[in-house]
């Protein structure tokens, strides 16, 4: 097939034009680079992610952006008060229902870039993930956030 990963090719062209400025010459060069790069990607044969309800992506993006702002403030306050031991760090194990590798990777990126929650390890045998939470106030609440706020949405996107 000519273009095994059309979305990847398009993103690479866009990245090339962003980095080099838009000129017809760079458009041609960028398309060449992107096509060869996506052929190289195809020879690695990764799982091709299937985007189900892709129109939910902006919603995920909005939720994550809001949560990142919120947890940035929370973690900054914890650090500034670190001497007084006002927080309660702890480990949390969550059983995941998603199996799609791309969806799991997106969830890992979301949880890592949200300060205060760290993705430690995923076990594909029993489909659990071990997290470390900086302020584990209410364990059920964290569980609920991950399962209902992120995982449900991701399962719909990568249906």
């Amino acid at each position: 097939m000519m273009l095994p990963y059309p979305l990847l090719t398009l993103s690479l062209v866009l990245m090339w034009l962003l980095l080099n400025g838009f000129t017809p010459g760079h458009l041609v060069l960028g398309i060449l680079v992107a096509v060869f790069a996506s052929w190289a990607m195809a020879s690695l044969r990764p799982d091709k992610p299937r985007l189900g309800k892709w129109y939910l992506l902006p919603k995920l993006f909005r939720i994550v952006l809001y949560d990142i702002v919120k947890s940035n403030i929370a973690v900054a306050l914890i650090i500034l008060k670190a001497g007084r031991r006002s927080h309660n760090p702890g480990f949390l194990t969550v059983e995941l229902d998603i199996e799609n590798h791309t969806a799991i990777a997106v969830l890992a990126v979301v949880l890592t870039s949200t300060p205060g929650s760290a993705w430690l390890e995923y076990d594909s045998n029993d489909k659990t993930v071990l997290l470390h939470i900086l302020d584990l106030g209410n364990e059920a609440e964290w569980h609920d956030t991950i399962k209902n706020r992120y995982e449900k949405l991701l399962m719909e996107i990568f249906a």
Binding site: N72, G83, T114, A118
Partner: peptide, 29 residues
């Protein structure tokens, strides 16, 4: 400011697993 707070946290938080949260301030906002 957030990057600075992250660096301070990296220095001050008591355990490794707590310290690992601090630099994510710098890598997010």
């Amino acid at each position: 400011g957030l990057a600075l707070i992250g660096a301070i946290g990296f220095l001050r938080l008591p355990t490794f697993y707590e310290r690992i949260h601090a630099p994510t301030l710098g890598t997010s906002w």
